[in-house]
Amino acid sequence: MAGYEEIVAEIRDGLAPFAKEGQTVHEGTRLVEDLGLDSLKVMDLLLEVEDRIDLSIPLNILADVQTVGDLAQELEKLTQEQ
C-alpha cells in the first residue's frame, strides 16, 4: 500500500511534463495557478496516478484539491480506506 511520500513522488512524476523550465514541483505547488493545468489535465493526472498506484480515485476529491499536497493527502486517505 502506497504511503504519503510514495504518493507525493508519483504525483511529482506525473506532473513533471507540465512544469515550466526551472520550476520544481513541491507539496505547495498549485495545480491550476502554478502549473497552468486545465480541468481536463487535472482529471487525466488522476487517471495516471490511479493506475500507477492501483487505487480507485473518484473525481469527487477534486473539489478539495488545489495543491500537490492537497492531492497527496486525499490519496493517502483513499489508500487507508481501500
Binding site: 482529471m43 488522476l46 487517471l47 490511479e50 480507485s56 480515485i57 473518484p58 473525481l59 469527487n60
Partner: peptide
Amino acid sequence: DGVRLSGAETFRFR
C-alpha cells in the same frame, strides 16, 4: 454535470 449532481463517486476510464 449530471453525475456531479448525483453525488455519486465518479471514476473516468480512458
